[in-house]
Amino acid sequence: MEFHISWILAFLALAVVASQAALSPEQYWKYELPNTPMPKVVQDMLHRDLEEKSTSVSVGGGGLKVNTGKENPRGNSSANLYTYVYAATETQIHDPNVALFFLEKDLHPRATMTLHFTEKTETSTFLPRQIAQKIPFSSNKLPEILKKFSVTPGSAEAEMMKNTIKECEAPQIRGEKKYCATSLESMIDFSTSKIGKNVQAISTEVEKRTPLQKYTIAYGVQKISGDKSVVCHKQNYPYVVFYCHKSEKTRAYMVPLEGADGTKAKALAICHTDTSAWNPKHVAFQVLKVEPGTIPICHFLPKDHIVWVPK
């Protein structure tokens, strides 16, 4: 996926002037979260080279694939798996690699899963909030948005942008609070409003880029939150947008993994203890052959997704 970036660069140039009257995203983080280290993935999203080609992210195979280029091979953004109001597509159901979801009872040492970790994902960049707020972000403004980004209507890029906005506008499921953050500042505000400012921001970490391979769960699985967390999923969009949701019915784990080639990783797993409000035809139920609300369902998070948990 490749977006025309000159318009973004123009906005970033304006940010230099705007920053004189407002804190930069980095300064805002330090001001609001002085005792919370910034994850490397967030740092990368603040300092990426916009001249690089963007990539589209799809998640499958228990994991974390990155598809580079203009074509979207499945016609779905990664977020489709994490918006639980949607039914599975035929492509998802018949994809032999969709092992992303698993049962909480299987989260134990010596269990194996097939995963694909990548060195980095998209090269999109956070925009300062005062700039992001000036950019339309709604379905009824889609033609204007596509024109500003020089994206051809009906193209793969246009469909991904349309889907991202649509998912952000979709109703939240029962027991969930959702929000699409178009800036780092707005993600901080939403997350801290739900769980307070004494927080950790955590993401999946891996030693190096790896091929699709088997990983074994090592000893030392660590529960990092009870029922209180905010999970933010990176979206496919020309600049950084996160789909964040807070639920009282989740548990977060940091899971040590060892790959068949010796690669070590610390992967974030989110377990949903109440799935009764999910679409009964969601891909998780199709893959795991379980019914909504019967048993906790878990999934790993890609490297560019973030979990906020109380310290």
Rank of each mutant, 00 (worst) to 15 (best):
G175D: 05
E159H: 06
E104G: 03
T91P: 00
K141I: 01
E157T: 08
I188C: 11
L107Q: 07
D106Q: 10
L103N: 03
Y84I: 05
T91F: 12
P109W: 13
R129P: 07
H116K: 15
A99S: 13
Q172F: 05
K105C: 08
Y86P: 00
D106E: 13
H108G: 01
G175W: 13
R174M: 03
I165F: 03
F190R: 01
T152H: 00
K177T: 01
T152E: 05
N163C: 03
G154I: 05
S138W: 04
V151N: 03
S193Y: 02
K194M: 15
M113L: 13
H94T: 10
T182D: 09
R129E: 15
E122W: 04
L115D: 02
A88S: 02
M187Y: 05
L146Q: 09
E159S: 09
I165E: 04
E90D: 14
E119H: 09
K120D: 14
E157N: 13
L100A: 07
R110L: 14
S155G: 02
P96K: 06
V98P: 02
E90M: 08
P153E: 12
Q130C: 10
M160S: 12
R110Q: 14
F190K: 02
K147P: 04
P171M: 05
I135R: 01
C168W: 02
T182P: 06
M113N: 01
T91C: 06
K141G: 01
V85Q: 13
D106W: 01
G154M: 03
I173A: 05
K148M: 03
H108K: 15
T164F: 10
M187K: 06
A87M: 00
A181P: 07
A156M: 05
I188S: 09
K141M: 08
P136F: 00
S150I: 00
V85G: 12
T83P: 00
P171G: 05
T125Y: 14
I131Y: 12
K147T: 12
M113R: 00
L100P: 02
K134F: 06
T112Y: 13
V98K: 12
S139E: 04
F137G: 04
T114W: 07
I195S: 06
H94A: 10
S139I: 03
T121F: 15
E185M: 11
A132D: 13
L107G: 06
H116W: 10
A170H: 01
N97F: 14
F101C: 08
I173Y: 01
L127S: 11
I165M: 07
K105G: 13
E167W: 08
Q133S: 13
P143A: 00
L184C: 10
L146A: 05
M160Q: 11
K194C: 10
S124G: 06
K177H: 06
I131E: 06
A132K: 12
A158F: 05
I195K: 14
Q130I: 15
L115V: 14
N97T: 12
A170K: 00
F101N: 12
K141E: 11
E157M: 07
Q92T: 04
A181S: 14
F117V: 01
P109Y: 14
L115Q: 03
I145R: 00
P96V: 04
T91D: 12
T89W: 07
L142S: 00
T114N: 09
L184K: 13
